[in-house]
């Protein structure tokens, strides 16, 4: 078991090393850092001096090692666009994205799971067909278009909800939250719904598919034969058995939530990491891009790792297989 975990962790580290290497290549070969610092008209001597100062005259492997060490200490350089340390900006923007993504996911779970269960139980009914049609719609509609339509309806036409920004925030240590002010909560409504639409559709289809799969199995037939009530069968037997795959996929879905946050933040001018990333790409701000790449990769890889390890802890069959 420890052997399995170590192997899993080693492979996660390998992925991180690969991503860091890509970021290193980007950082070094896209745009000229010396020009970025000195401008175009620097003399050769000045260039040499700066190159030596930055360590650019060292062999590649030495430089990669130095970069790796810097990254491990959270040192990502200075943003070309903002002229501030990348880490500082990242930390400042983090809370906005986390609060948006968490709220969106909560909405998606609260609506998606019951809808999925319903669609599996009332299979073939008119309301289920309507739900499934709506979910295909939810998967096909571009996230940014959901945002635009929501702004058009609730901001422009009905003047009910704000269409950009985070409202007023309260600082708790380095964290800023919009949960504690009214304007913050109101500003969260439209972006959170926008980011949730795709996830609702996704989770609903997933829960339904898993549930149908389980309902086909023999032990459900057996439970029916024992004369258990339908509700007991659906929730105690069927739903409980769909939980593991559903939890797995939903946690992996957090990764796609980051991607959807990028789009949603752009529509609503939400001051989070996603908007920052888009602005950095638009300005070819390479240090910012490589930092974002590494941070996001670290996030995804750790989620994957945690899910794998959890799976291993929850499911005794897996443990037995590895041990035997």
């Amino acid at each position: 078991m420890i052997w399995f975990m170590l192997r899993r962790i080693a492979s996660a580290l390998l992925v991180m090393l690969a991503v860091t290497a890509i970021a290193f290549v980007m950082f070094n070969y896209l745009g000229d850092p010396v020009v970025a610092i000195l401008g175009q008209d620097a003399s050769v001597a000045q260039r040499r001096a700066v190159e030596a100062q930055l360590g650019l005259d060292q062999p590649l492997i030495v430089r990669f090692w130095a970069y790796l060490m810097q990254v491990l200490q959270g040192e990502f350089g200075i943003s070309y666009r903002l002229g501030r340390p990348v880490v500082e900006v990242l930390i400042e923007r983090l809370p906005a994205t986390v609060e948006l993504a968490a709220t969106g996911m909560a909405i998606a779970l609260v609506i998606g799971i019951p809808a999925g269960i319903f669609a599996a139980i009332r299979r073939g009914s008119a309301s289920t067909r309507l739900l499934m049609g709506a979910s295909l719609f939810g998967i096909s509609v571009p996230t940014f278009f959901v945002g635009i339509v929501l702004i058009w309806v609730f901001n422009v036409t009905l003047s009910m909800l704000p269409s950009f920004g985070r409202g007023q925030t309260v600082a708790i240590g380095w964290w800023t939250t919009g949960f504690l002010t009214q304007s913050g909560l109101v500003a969260l409504v439209l972006p959170a719904i926008t980011i949730a639409v795709f996830q609702i559709a996704m989770i609903m289809r997933l829960v339904r598919a898993e549930m149908l799969e389980v309902l086909r199995s023999d032990f459900i037939l057996f439970a029916r034969a024992r004369g258990l009530s339908e509700w007991r069968i659906f929730f105690r037997h069927a739903f409980a058995n769909t939980l593991i795959p559903v939890i797995t996929v939903i946690s992996l879905q957090i990764g796609s939530l980051i991607a959807f946050a990028v789009i949603t933040e752009s529509v609503f001018q939400w001051p989070g990491l996603g908007l920052l990333f888009l602005q950095s790409v638009g300005a070819a701000d390479v240090p910012m891009m490589s930092a974002y790449l590494i941070v996001i990769a670290a996030l995804f890889v750790s989620i994957n790792l945690i899910v794998d390890l959890l799976y291993f802890i929850i499911d005794p069959r897996l443990r037995a297989r590895v041990a035997g």
């Binding site: 992925v15 990764g255 980051i258 990028v262 789009i263 891009m289 790449l293 990769a297 994957n304």
Partner: peptide
Amino acid sequence: TFPAILIAVM
């Protein structure tokens, strides 16, 4: 491990 849209943006 990365969503396609982020790779495309990158």
